[in-house]
Design a protein around this nucleic acid. Structure first.
Length: 910
RNA sequence: GCCGCGGUGGUGAAAUGGCAGACACAGGGGACUUAAAAUCCCCAGGCCGCAAGGCCGUGCGGGUUCGAGUCCCGCCCGCGGCACCA
C-alpha cells in the first residue's frame, strides 16, 4: 500500500455522519414541514414552514435501478451508475432544484430461496443480512440518497401495494372502443351471456390479469415457469438451464393489449436508439393481411396471416403448425399415422432443439387440400414446425418463389414454385427473391396486379379481399402476454382464492383490499411438494380457508416489485395508498419539460424485461387515473459494462473481480467515484485499471496540497504515525485538527489569468454535466489544478468556486476543504450542498490576442498571433506574410484565402 | 441472416466540418533523498534527419469541401440485440 495522498479515511466517515445527522439530502414533498435549520429551506426561503407544491422549486427526479441485494455484495458496476446519478443530483441541488434521489432494494429473488431450500434459513433473514451489507457498502461511497424513502420489495408494507396494484389490474379490462384500460364493471356482456356462470366466464376472459391453460416455458432445473422475456436461446436467463414447453394453468397479464401504445410512445421519451430498437424488435409489429383459405371438400376455412398479400397468386401450398386446432380434422385417414407421429416428434422437442435444428426443414402432408382464393388452384396442406403456433394464426400460405423458408421447404418436398414478383433488377434471379418488385402472373377474371409495384399491389389485393369477405388488413405483434406466475416461495402471494361455483366449476376470486398485505406462510421446507405443487401448497393451514376456498399457491415474478418502486419512493411512508395524488403529480408531472422520472440510469440487461414491464404497469395505472403521465421514465441512460483488468467480463471463475471494499480501503470513496467517472463515457464498455485509480487519487492529493499548509501536513503525518491505527471519531478529530490551510490562501483579488482558468473550468464542467460527460468534466478540473499549483498566491475567490465544481464528484474532500476554507478566512460556513452553483462569466475568457493557425492548401504551416479584433483583411495580409508559410506560397498563385474568424486561415495556392 | 452501436498513440480516451491525440495511465530522462517511496520538472503518434525541418497518420477504398476523425457511397472488422415471427 502506497502512502496516503490525504487523510480520506478520517474525512469520509466524518462527512457521512454529518450528512446523516443533518438529513442534508432529504427531499421535501408538497406539504412537508421543513425544519428551521435545514439548508434546503434556508436556500429557498422555506425554512420552518410547510411548503405547498407552488412554493417548492422545480423538481428533478434522478433514479437508479435499485439492486438485488445478493450475497456477493456490491460489484464495481453498481457504483458506476450510482456515481453518475449522484453527481447529477448534487449538481441539480446546487442549481436550485428540489432533487429526489432515492435508493431501495429489489429483494425478492431466487438466490435467497435456493439458500433456504439448502439450509432451512428463512429467505427473509438472508435478505435482511444482504440488505445490511449493501447498505453499508453504498453508504460508504457517500451517495446523496434520501434514505427516509428507502423501500424493499419484500417489506409487507411495500408488497401490500404490489398486491393492490395487481387487484387493480385483475379488476380491469382493455376497452378497444376507448383504447384504454377500464374497471371491469364497465364491461358490457354479449347477448348470449345469460347465466352468472356465463357472465363470469366472459368477464374472466377479458381481465387484464387472467388464467390461461396453455403451453408455457417450464424450466425443470429452476422448478418454475418463465416469461418469454426470461428465456434466451431456449435457456433460462438466470442460470442458463434448459427450458421446455409444457401446458400448465398460469396467470397471465394482457400486455399485448398495450403493444401499440408501448411501441408508439417510445417516440415520446429520450432513450438510446439501441434500447428503443430492442423494445421495438421485441414488440415486433408487422402489418399485413389475414386471408381465409377454403379447405377443399370441407366446411372448414384456414385463416393465415401474411405480410405479403401481393404474393397470394404464388401460394402453392399451405402449412399449419403441428399444434394447429384443425390438424386432426383435416388429416386424411391415409396420413393420420404420419401426422400423429410428426406431432409427437414436434411436441417433444425443447425450445433449444427447435432452434438448433432450425436449419433443416421437416414436415408432413395432411392429405388435405385448400383452394387458393385467387387462382382457385388446389394446394396441399402440410404441417411443419417451422410454422409457430404462437404467431399470427398458426398457419401460413406458402409462397416458395418469394420466401426463403418456404423455398427451402418446397425444394425439400418437391412442391411447385411459381413466380409472382419480378425483381427490379432484371439480372436478379426471381427464385427466392424476397424483396419488393413488380407483380407478375397475378391476375384472374376479377383482379390483376400485373405490373403493379409491391407496395401498391398489397393495397389492391387487400382491398379486393375485403370487398369479397375473404380477408382483411391486420397488424400482428411478436409480443406475447406476460406469464406472471411462478412456482416459488419468495415472491408476492397472489391475493386470489379459488372456489367452486354452484355448478362445481373452480373459479378465482379476488381478496378484498382489506385483506392486504397477504403474507406468505411460514414453512419448514421451501421445496415444491412431492406432486409438483409450488412450495406454498405445503402450508395446509394457510392454504385452506374456513369457507372452503383455497388460496392461489403461485407467487408473482421478481419483476412485479420493480414495476412501480419509483412511484413508492415519492411517498414511501403512505399507509393510505400506494402514492398520494398531489405528491405524485408534483414529482412526476410538474416542471413541464420532462414528465416522469427526469433521469433513470441502469444497465442494459433489463431492456425487454423490467423496462418493458414497468412501462406496461404505468400505462395501466395511467388509464385508471392513478398516475398523471403516460410514461414513467423520460430520459434513460444505460451505463456500460465494466470489464476486468484483462478486458474480460468480470467473473469469479476468471478471478478478475474487483471488490469495491478493497478499492475504498486503499484510495477512499472520492477517488473511487472519480475513477469510475474518469474511465470513459458512461455508456461505454470499458476495462478496469487499478493504475487509473492511482491517477485520479493523485489528482485529489494535488487538490489537497493546493489548500493545505505543508508544515501542518508534516505535523499531521508524524502525529498519525504515532497514533497508529486508532480510528475513533475523537482521535480522527484530534488529528484533523493539526491540519492548517496554506498561508498562500488569502481573501484578495484574483488576477485575470486566474479568473480565466477558473471560468474556463466552470464553463466546461457545467456543459459536460448537462451532457453527462463526466470524464471530460474531470479532466477540466485537472487542467485547473495543474495551473493553480503553479500560482504564488491562492485567492479564495477562485478556490471557493472550484470546490463547488469538485463537490458533486468528490463530495467528502470538497466539504472538508470548504469548511476549512471558510474557517481559515474567519467567515461562517455555508452549506456546500445548497450553495448556488458558480455562474460562468464569458467576459472573463475574452483575450486581447489570439493564436491563429495558418494553413496552405489545408495543411498547417504556421501559427500567427493576432489581436482579437483583427479584420478579415488584416488576418489575410498577416497570413500571406507568415514566415513559415512563405516557402509554400512564394512562386505560386494565391487563388483564394479563407478566413474563419477566431479559428484559422487557409491560403489556397496553385 | 436482420437490426443497433462502434473502430483514433503502448493503454483508457479528447476533439460545434477548422492546429488530431486534451486529460490520465504505462514508459523514458532529470531534481530532491545515504537509498527508496512520495512529490516536483521535462520528453513522448510513426518514419527520415545532427538539427532546422519535412513526409505520413483517426479500420480499408472512393467522394463532397478551401479544409474530413467528423458529412456521403461501397467494403472489412469488433461488440450488443433478435433470430424459422410468415
Amino acid at each position: 500500500m502506497s502512502r496516503r495522498q490525504y487523510p480520506f479515511h478520517l474525512i469520509e466517515p466524518r462527512w457521512q455522519r454529518h450528512w446523516a445527522a443533518e438529513q442534508t439530502f432529504r427531499a421535501w414533498n408538497p406539504g412537508d414541514s421543513i425544519p428551521e435549520s435545514h439548508p434546503f429551506g434556508l436556500r429557498h426561503g422555506l425554512a420552518g414552514r410547510a411548503a405547498a407544491a407552488s412554493d417548492l422549486p422545480p423538481k428533478f427526479y434522478i433514479l437508479d435501478m435499485f439492486p438485488y441485494p445478493s450475497g456477493a455484495g456490491l460489484h464495481v458496476g453498481h457504483p458506476e451508475g450510482y456515481t453518475a446519478t449522484d453527481i447529477l443530483a448534487r449538481y441539480r441541488r446546487a442549481q436550485g432544484f428540489n432533487v429526489l434521489h432515492p435508493m431501495g432494494w429489489d429483494s425478492f429473488g431466487l438466490p435467497a430461496e435456493q439458500y433456504a431450500v439448502k439450509t432451512g434459513q428463512h429467505p427473509r433473514i438472508t435478505t435482511e443480512t444482504n440488505i445490511a451489507n449493501f447498505t453499508r457498502q453504498i453508504q460508504s461511497l457517500g451517495f446523496s440518497y434520501d434514505w427516509s424513502r428507502e423501500v424493499a420489495t419484500t417489506d409487507p408494507e411495500y408488497f401490500r401495494w404490489t398486491q393492490w396494484i395487481f387487484l387493480k389490474i385483475y379488476n380491469s379490462w382493455f376497452n378497444p372502443a376507448t383504447n384504454k384500460a377500464e374497471p371491469i364493471d364497465t364491461l358490457t356482456y354479449p347477448a348470449d351471456c345469460q347465466t352468472d356462470a356465463q357472465r363470469r366466464a366472459y368477464r374472466d376472459s377479458k381481465r387484464l390479469a387472467y388464467v390461461s391453460e396453455a403451453p408455457v416455458n417450464w424450466c425443470p432445473e429452476l422448478g418454475t415457469v418463465l416469461a418469454n422475456e426470461e428465456v434466451i436461446d431456449g435457456k433460462s436467463e438466470v442460470g442458463g438451464f434448459p427450458v421446455i414447453r409444457k401446458p400448465m394453468r398460469q396467470w397471465m397479464l394482457r400486455i399485448t393489449a398495450y403493444a401499440e401504445k408501448l411501441l408508439a410512445d417510445l417516440n415520446t421519451i429520450e432513450w438510446s436508439d439501441s434500447l428503443k430498437e430492442m423494445q421495438r424488435n421485441w414488440i415486433g409489429r408487422s402489418e399485413g393481411a389475414e386471408v381465409d383459405f377454403q379447405v377443399d371438400s370441407h366446411a372448414e376455412k384456414i385463416r393465415v396471416f401474411t405480410t405479403r398479400p401481393d404474393t397470394l397468386f404464388g401460394a402453392t401450398y399451405m402449412v399449419l403448425s403441428p399444434e394447429h386446432r384443425l390438424v386432426s380434422t383435416l388429416t386424411t385417414p391415409a396420413q393420420t399415422a404420419a401426422v400423429k407421429q410428426y406431432q409427437e416428434f414436434a411436441a417433444t422437442k425443447s425450445d433449444l432443439e427447435r432452434t438448433e435444428l432450425a436449419k433443416d426443414k421437416t414436415g408432413v402432408w395432411t392429405g388435405a387440400y385448400a383452394l387458393n382464393p385467387v387462382t382457385g388452384g388446389r394446394i396441399p396442406i402440410w404441417i411443419a414446425d417451422y410454422v409457430l403456433a404462437t404467431y399470427g394464426t398458426g398457419a401460413i400460405m406458402a409462397v416458395p418463389a418469394h420466401d426463403e423458408r418456404d423455398f427451402e421447404f418446397a425444394q425439400k418436398f418437391q412442391l411447385p414454385v411459381v413466380q409472382v414478383v419480378q425483381p427490379p433488377d432484371t439480372k436478379t434471379e426471381w427464385q427466392g427473391f424476397c424483396d419488393e418488385g413488380t407483380a407478375v402472373n397475378s391476375s384472374n377474371a376479377e383482379i390483376s396486379l400485373d405490373g403493379v409495384p409491391t407496395a401498391e399491389a398489397k393495397r389492391r389485393i387487400t382491398a379486393w379481399l375485403e370487398s369479397k369477405g375473404l380477408g382483411q388488413k391486420t397488424v400482428n405483434f411478436k409480443l406475447r402476454d406476460w406469464l406472471f406466475s411462478r412456482q416459488r416461495y419468495w415472491g408476492e402471494p397472489f391475493p386470489i382464492v379459488w372456489r367452486k361455483d354452484a355448478e362445481g366449476t373452480l373459479c378465482h376470486e379476488a381478496l378484498p383490499e382489506t385483506a392486504l398485505p397477504l403474507l406468505p406462510p411460514t414453512l419448514e421446507d421451501y421445496k415444491p411438494t412431492a406432486d409438483g405443487q409450488p412450495p406454498l401448497a405445503r402450508a395446509q393451514d394457510w392454504l385452506n380457508l374456513p369457507d372452503g376456498s383455497v388460496r392461489e399457491t403461485n407467487t408473482m415474478p421478481q419483476w412485479a416489485g420493480s414495476c412501480w418502486y419509483y412511484l413508492r419512493y415519492l411517498d414511501a411512508q403512505n399507509s393510505q395508498g400506494f402514492v398520494g395524488r398531489e405528491v405524485e403529480s408534483y414529482w412526476m408531472k410538474s416542471g413541464g419539460k420532462t414528465p416522469g422520472v427526469d433521469l433513470y440510469v441502469g444497465g442494459t440487461e433489463h431492456a425487454v424485461l423490467h423496462l418493458l414491464y414497468a412501462r406496461f404497469w404505468h400505462k395501466i395505472l395511467f388509464d385508471l387515473g392513478q398516475v398523471s403521465t403516460a410514461e414513467p421514465f423520460f430520459k434513460l441512460v444505460n451505463q456500460g459494462l465494466i470489464l476486468g483488468e484483462d478486458g474480460q467480463k468480470m467473473s469469479k471463475s476468471r478471478g478478475n473481480v474487483v471488490n469495491p471494499d478493497d478499492v475504498l480501503a486503499e484510495y477512499g470513496a472520492d477517488a473511487f467515484r472519480l475513477y469510475e467517472m474518469f474511465m470513459g463515457p458512461l455508456q461505454d464498455t470499458k476495462p478496469w485499471n487499478t493504475q487509473g485509480v492511482e491517477g485520479v487519487y493523485r489528482f485529489l492529493g494535488r487538490v489537497w496540497r493546493l489548500f493545505v499548509d505543508e508544515k501542518a501536513e508534516t505535523d499531521y503525518e508524524q502525529a498519525s504515525t504515532v497514533a497508529g491505527g486508532t480510528d475513533s471519531a475523537a482521535e480522527a478529530a484530534r488529528l484533523l485538527d493539526l491540519i492548517r490551510l496554506s498561508p498562500l490562501i488569502r481573501d484578495e483579488a484574483p488576477t485575470p489569468a486566474q479568473l480565466k482558468l477558473l471560468h474556463e473550468c466552470i464553463r466546461k464542467v457545467g456543459h459536460d454535466l448537462e451532457h453527462l460527460q463526466f470524464n471530460t468534466a474531470i479532466s477540466a478540473m485537472m487542467v485547473f489544478i495543474n495551473g493553480a499549483m503553479t500560482w504564488e498566491n491562492r485567492p479564495s475567490a477562485v478556490l471557493r468556486p472550484f470546490l463547488q465544481l469538485l463537490a458533486p464528484f468528490a463530495p467528502h474532500l470538497a466539504e472538508e476543504l470548504w469548511q476549512r476554507l471558510h474557517q481559515h478566512l474567519g467567515t461562517p460556513v455555508p452549506s456546500l450542498t445548497y450553495a448556488p452553483w458558480p455562474a460562468f462569466d464569458p467576459a472573463l475568457l475574452v483575450e486581447t490576442d489570439m493564436e491563429l493557425p495558418v494553413q496552405v492548401n489545408g495543411k498547417l504551416r504556421d501559427v500567427i498571433r493576432m489581436p482579437v479584433g483583427a479584420s478579415a483583411a488584416e488576418i489575410e495580409a498577416a497570413a500571406l506574410k507568415a514566415e513559415k508559410a512563405q516557402a509554400f506560397i512564394v512562386g505560386k498563385t494565391v487563388k483564394k484565402v479563407i478566413v474563419v474568424p477566431r479559428k484559422m486561415v487557409n491560403v489556397v495556392v496553385a
